[in-house]
């Protein structure tokens, strides 16, 4: 019996053990996230509400000088709405890690023979799954209301990958805050920062129509690069070249945030040892 139990325990340092642990904990993260409707219902519905209002309020702005070549404000909004929903949901998903800390489950995980990196990365699976699923869902909803992705399946694939990587990045940021503070409330309170990043970007209106300092800030905002890459697939057509900058920014952002979370995890372990 002991042998049977021992054989199911993944051993730190072995690839198969880490992979099994990663898959098991990723599954737990995804199931745990979707089991609580409060985790994803608001994050899914709220951006759609804002889009419905904005599409009606700003429909005449498509004729403004500097606006991209489209007659549909809804189509213009698609990329911004997808990223907005993804970021909101990812922050919610990352509160689960803080909850694990609050409940003491994290301590048990850390005491187990599993790689620390695997523990952290697998926790981001909930955010990644949400980002990918939400992008597909929003593309379908927008299509039902007449806004389509000109880039076809290739363009949609680019959008899914971009939002998944961004979800991992924001999840990493939430994980870093959670590991630093050990409080789910603190992770939730970091939500306004995401809101600010989104608003001072090209998410809801083209940067070309803005002016002054605000325009400069929106242009320099990394979120704008990701949204513009995604928006190109919606408005113009499939282009990997146009998506490249967005990919580079999203992957860079995710890498920095995961590194930040790992630093916080190491710090937490040192504090507790």
């Amino acid at each position: 019996m002991t042998g049977a139990v021992t054989s199911t325990i993944p051993h730190e340092g072995t690839r198969s053990g880490d992979l099994r642990a990663f898959l098991a904990m990723s599954r737990r993260a995804v199931v745990g996230f979707f089991r609580q409707p409060s985790n994803w219902v608001v994050g899914t519905a709220f951006p759609l509400l804002i889009t419905a209002v904005s599409a009606s309020a700003f429909s005449r702005s498509t004729s403004l000088q500097g606006f991209p070549d489209t007659d549909s404000f809804l189509q213009f909004l698609m990329a911004g709405t997808i990223l907005q929903g993804t970021l909101f949901g990812s922050i919610t998903a990352s509160t689960d890690l803080a909850l694990d800390i609050e409940k003491g489950f994290m301590d048990r995980l850390l005491a187990s023979p599993v790689s620390r990196t695997v523990i952290l990365i697998s926790r981001l699976a909930g955010a990644a799954a949400f980002g990918a699923g939400l992008t597909v869902f929003y593309i379908v909803v927008f299509r039902l209301f007449g806004a389509k992705v000109e880039g076809g399946l290739g363009g949609m694939a680019v959008m899914v990958v971009l939002s998944t990587v961004m979800a991992i990045g924001v999840g990493g940021y939430g994980a870093a805050v959670g590991l630093r503070t050990g409080s789910a409330e603190a992770v939730g309170n970091s939500f306004p920062l995401i809101f600010i990043l989104l608003f001072i970007s090209s998410a809801f209106f083209p940067v070309e129509t803005m002016s002054g300092t605000y325009q400069a800030m929106a242009q320099a905002n990394p979120v704008s690069f990701v949204i513009d890459a995604s928006r190109y697939q919606v408005l113009e057509g499939f282009s990997l070249a146009e998506a490249a900058t967005g990919f580079a920014v999203a992957i860079g952002f995710a890498a920095i945030m995961i590194a930040l979370a790992l630093v916080q995890l190491r710090r937490r372990l040192e504090d507790h040892s």
Binding site: F58, R60, L64, I200, F204, F205, T209, M210, S211, Y214
Partner: peptide, 21 residues
């Protein structure tokens, strides 16, 4: 305090062009 200030700045910045409609 902060949310209305943020909304004022971000709405005015993002949607500054709508006055041309």
């Amino acid at each position: 305090l902060l949310m209305p200030i943020f909304f004022m700045i971000s709405f005015s910045g993002s949607y500054s062009a709508i006055t041309r409609i």
